[in-house]
Amino acid sequence: MDRYAWLPDHQLHAAYSLAHADSLIEQAGHLALDHTRRDTVTLDHVVEGDMVSTTVTSVAPLPQALVRLASDALNQLRSTLEHVLYAEIEHRAGGPLSSEHARTVEMPCTPSANDLQKWAEKRPRRDIAVLQPGTALYRRIADLQPFQRRDSQDVHPLKILVAHTNHSKHRTPSLAATFVAAVQPDQPSDDIQVTPPLDRPIKVGDVLAIQPVGRVVEASLWPKIAIQRPHTDTWHILIHELRDLESWVRRSALPLLIAGSTDVSPLPPHLDITIGYADFRTAIGAAGTASAADRLEMLLGAEMAREALPGILLMHSHGSPHGQALAAWAAALSDDEALQRHESLRGFQGHDLDTAVRAMIDEVLNA
């Protein structure tokens, strides 16, 4: 049975637009990830009396391509919504709209049912019969409105998407900045005071930790790139914001607008549209089901696994003399292999873990 039978011919374009948004998110994500690896925040130790403050001395500027790619991805997601709505209106109307009516077509974002009705009945939009209250398409649009989120409209995906895209279209590109997600001493101690994560971008002069003079403790610093929501001024991890909005458009908004239900197989997000396809079925068959955010998460997880595996194996007496060989082996693992090997050790404890680690070391040494 065709998983995508719910997608009619006049809406096939949506799959290609989603693929473009996915590509933009991947590019933005890679830039963000690369940026956090390159001495994003530099620190110095400032002595004050008998205490030493670990203080930020510089913050690397964000690559400007990053914020623009994020803006482009958000705008592409909103454009996909608009294109699908327009195509659905023309299909239901039985032909092209007049230029006067076409200019009035947009995906509304309204705070109340009454406001949505006013939107539909405003001239010349009220002459578009398929958009009027009581029609199937009107009900589908209503189901996607922020007023459906009774607890807080500000966190409704459509409200967030519209806020981002209005800001980047009319004011400035998306606002992104570097935050410190966590500072983690390698050897935690009661005499080391770590500053809790700030709810604002990191800046020169911020103190991240305080410890007694003479106390030397290594610590890990975890930077993150965040994006600001224009309508609330709150900051959110950039790749999570893009992931959540992409998922809502692809899994909820488009199926509801097109099929009237979210109980359908969502379109696959990952498709190379730099090449041409003879038909839609060929294209969809070549698409990947993992979104850009999922692929980036897998990449990061694999990198962490490659770094962790040699240390785990070296803790075993059988592996301790072979550090160089174990490090080279881990570095050569593919992403899937690294994740699988690391995950395979997580289910063991005690003697079983010892046996599993020894077997993995033997496998490496005998390869």
Rank of each mutant, 00 (worst) to 15 (best):
D22Q: 07
L238I: 02
V41M: 10
L31S: 10
V357E: 11
F179Q: 00
S291R: 00
E337Q: 15
D206Y: 04
A253E: 05
T57W: 12
R200Q: 14
E307A: 13
S53R: 06
L238H: 01
K159G: 06
D272I: 12
W119E: 10
A287L: 14
S344A: 11
P269V: 01
L299S: 07
R358M: 15
H164E: 12
L326C: 13
A325N: 09
L31K: 02
V46H: 12
W222T: 09
Y138W: 14
Q76M: 10
S23R: 01
R150E: 05
E246G: 09
G214D: 12
V217A: 05
A338G: 08
H20C: 01
I275T: 06
L314N: 05
L62N: 05
R123D: 14
A19W: 11
L24R: 05
V130I: 13
V249E: 09
Q148T: 01
L137H: 09
M107E: 14
D50E: 11
S344F: 03
V46T: 10
P111V: 06
N75H: 10
P321A: 03
A219V: 04
E48L: 13
C109V: 00
I239C: 02
L300D: 15
A65F: 00
D9I: 09
E106P: 00
E218K: 10
R125A: 12
A332Y: 00
N75P: 09
A338N: 10
Q117W: 08
W329K: 15
A21I: 14
P310D: 04
S291G: 08
Q193F: 14
L256M: 08
Q76I: 03
W248F: 03
P146G: 03
D206R: 05
E26P: 01
G319M: 11
H170I: 13
E343K: 07
L18M: 14
D115M: 12
L245I: 13
I89G: 01
T80Q: 03
L74C: 03
R200M: 08
L221Y: 04
I25C: 08
V216T: 07
L66E: 10
A292F: 09
I210T: 14
R171A: 14
V41P: 13
I210K: 15
H30S: 14
A19L: 14
Y16C: 10
V47M: 15
D206P: 00
P223R: 07
K159Y: 08
L313F: 13
G276E: 10
R251P: 00
H45K: 13
E82F: 02
P212N: 06
K122N: 06
M1Q: 04
W235N: 08
V357T: 11
S58A: 15
P268R: 01
V155H: 03
T135E: 12
Q340E: 13
T110N: 04
P133N: 11
D233Q: 12
T172W: 04
P157H: 05
K118E: 15
P124T: 07
S79W: 08
